[in-house]
């Protein structure tokens, strides 16, 4: 299955992308300074957004550290195309799930699991400003449980199995809720 990337990247206009790619090229070459620059550019939103998926700040911190360690150790998994921020997010959310699987913290309250209001691009408030438009409005109208599942899969880019680990519910529940959420969205949009 092709990995879905977080929403928002195609709508974002960001001059920093070229710079991100240049930094990644230097990281591939083993440049520690480039890694630190990459960290300084992206750690802020990544930490904040991971924090909105996990109630335990310690686990979030470990996930962020693991993300950049993974970037340093296998930078070639970045295919030199696409958004570096989206790539970082896809690593970060999986590192977070790894941590949650190991420590089993209390899953985050689905009601708190909001649409990401920070993203890899400069226009942080993009999401908060209602760029999701009608879709975002309808998302808000879903019950918290359904919305959380939809956010985890459609926006975080997780599989149903990973979403189940993130939300601390069985995979079957995720599938059922996802189906119900899709029906609700379809009805609302038609």
């Amino acid at each position: 299955m092709a990995r879905r990337t977080p929403a928002g990247e195609d709508s974002a206009v960001d001059d920093g992308r070229g710079e991100d790619r240049a930094l990644m090229a230097r990281v591939v070459g083993g440049d520690r300074v480039a890694l630190e620059l990459l960290y300084r550019r992206h750690a802020g939103w990544l930490t904040a957004r991971l924090q909105s998926r996990c109630a335990d700040p310690d686990l979030t911190d470990i996930a962020v550290q693991d993300t950049f360690l993974a970037v340093w150790r296998s930078p070639s998994s970045y295919r030199n195309e696409g958004d570096v921020g989206a790539w970082l997010w896809s690593i970060g959310i999986r590192k977070l799930i790894d941590q949650m699987r190991k420590r089993r913290p209390t899953p985050i309250d689905p009601a708190i699991m909001a649409l990401p209001d920070v993203g890899p691009d400069a226009a942080d408030s993009l999401f908060a400003n209602g760029s999701y438009g009608e879709l975002g409005m309808n998302l808000v109208r879903l019950t918290p449980e359904l919305r959380a599942v939809l956010i985890a899969t459609a926006i975080d880019g997780l599989s149903t199995k990973e979403a189940a680990q993130l939300l601390g519910v069985p995979q079957g529940t995720v599938k059922t809720r996802l189906m119900r959420a899709r029906h609700a969205m379809q009805e609302a949009l038609s």
């Binding site: 630190e36 960290y39 300084r40 750690a43 802020g44 939103w45 930490t47 904040a48 924090q51 700040p57 911190d61 962020v64 550290q65 920070v118 942080d124």
Partner: peptide
């Protein structure tokens, strides 16, 4: 964007 996450925390993570 770094105003969302505490700078001290970011620095600590980088140190780690």
């Amino acid at each position: 964007m770094s105003q969302i996450v505490n700078q001290v925390r970011l620095d600590a993570n980088w140190s780690a």
